[in-house]
């Protein structure tokens, strides 16, 4: 092949951009006050709830870009605040499970406390009734008795704050507890109806042999999943694009039967055309997991698997503290707050 300079090739644009880009480079398009894309977004955006239970929601978000859907997902996992046990004051632990492992297990227990009612405990703050929840665990296994299992329902909420006293700096000083609550939490209207317990009462914390005991106090504070996964308010939050299964050619007779059998999630169905003729149809494209089983081998030219780019099937599994629909609105609010903060920083 003769050597040709890349610049002399016939399809080189020679300094010219494609027409639409050239227009964008050289002209400012003046439109009505509100940007056009916002209007069309508001017009085309649709949202439909498919399933909503106590701790799970599935909904379809249509007409939104992946960057926004992903922002919501990321915020749900890492930036929506939660309450979780952060400090454990170990008084006695003669069980086989080490202090730090026990403390870590306690941290992961989901608490039934609405984080919106609490404030963050910052470094200079003293723990008070607005930013800390205190739990006590005091269990022992009787000598000569059978082994026992310590479950999360044995964590007792202390609405009056810590019952442990710090060692005073000198003899005359009044002993202080580890928290400084100004009033009891169960006298506060938001907590009096709903005690701040654990979400699940059957989580195994430890097992005790005869004569072993655990006595501790656990302090829960507000935090976000970015810092530690125990503060993540969701078990998971994920989305997938809506699958679209297209039959490029008619699939009839035995081939149709074969195709229906191939799919593990029954995306296809048989349509009776009368007088014994059968045709394959796509009946449940939504169930498709894109396993590609149906296009393996012979069917590659017959079936095409696609995804709809702006249709997201969003699922949120709440860890329990807040219902899933509240979590999503909180996540969107957090993104709004971020924008607001940057705008005020810029001006």
């Amino acid at each position: 092949m003769p050597k040709v300079s890349a610049l002399d090739m016939p399809d080189v644009p020679m300094g010219q951009l494609p027409e639409h880009l050239q227009l964008q480079r050289s002209r400012v398009v003046c439109k009505a006050d509100a940007p056009i894309h916002l209007e069309s977004f508001c017009k085309n955006f649709k949202l439909e709830v498919i399933r909503l239970t106590e701790d799970e929601i599935e909904f379809d978000m249509i007409g939104i870009d992946a960057s926004l859907a992903n922002a919501f997902r990321r915020i749900l996992i890492a930036e929506v605040p939660m309450m979780a046990i952060e400090k454990v004051l170990m008084v006695n632990n003669t069980s086989v499970i080490a202090d730090e492992v026990l403390a870590h297990r306690l941290g992961l227990i989901p608490l039934n406390a609405d984080p919106r009612l609490f404030e963050y405990l910052s470094e200079n703050d003293s723990p008070n009734e607005r930013n800390t929840i205190v739990y006590k665990l005091d269990v022992s296994c009787r000598k000569g008795g059978p082994r026992m299992t310590v479950k999360s329902d044995q964590l007792k909420w202390l609405p009056n704050g810590s019952e442990l006293e710090m060692t005073p700096p000198n003899q005359s000083a009044k002993p202080k507890s580890y928290t400084s609550f100004s009033c009891s939490q169960d006298s506060m209207p938001e907590f009096s109806k709903k005690p701040l317990g654990v979400k699940h009462e059957d989580i195994i914390i430890a097992k005790l042999g005869p004569g072993q005991a655990i006595e501790l106090e656990a302090h829960a504070v507000k935090g976000i999943g970015k810092v530690h996964a125990k503060w993540s308010p969701v078990s998971t939050a994920w989305y997938r694009m809506l699958p679209e299964v297209v039959l490029l050619k008619d699939i009839k007779g035995d081939d149709a039967e074969k195709l229906v059998k191939k799919c593990p999630v029954n995306v296809f169905d048989i349509e009776d055309l009368g007088n014994g003729k059968k045709k394959a149809v796509v009946s449940k494209p939504r169930a498709c997991t894109l396993c590609r089983e149906c296009i393996r081998g012979v069917n590659e030219e017959l079936v095409e698997l696609r995804r709809v780019k702006d249709h997201f099937i969003f699922t949120i599994e709440s860890a329990g503290a807040l219902p899933p629909e509240v979590l999503f609105t909180e996540a969107v609010k957090i993104l709004e707050d971020k924008c607001d903060r940057v705008i005020s920083d810029l001006s």
Binding site: L47, V49, E325, T329, L335, E336, V342, I343
Partner: peptide
């Protein structure tokens, strides 16, 4: 850039109201 953030905020608000409506409908 400021307008970009402003638009993002408007979009979020729209998503939130639509979502609340969808949940109420459900």
């Amino acid at each position: 850039l400021k307008d970009g953030f402003q638009n993002l905020m408007i979009m979020c608000q729209h998503v939130r109201t639509t979502f609340d409506k969808a949940v109420a409908d459900y």
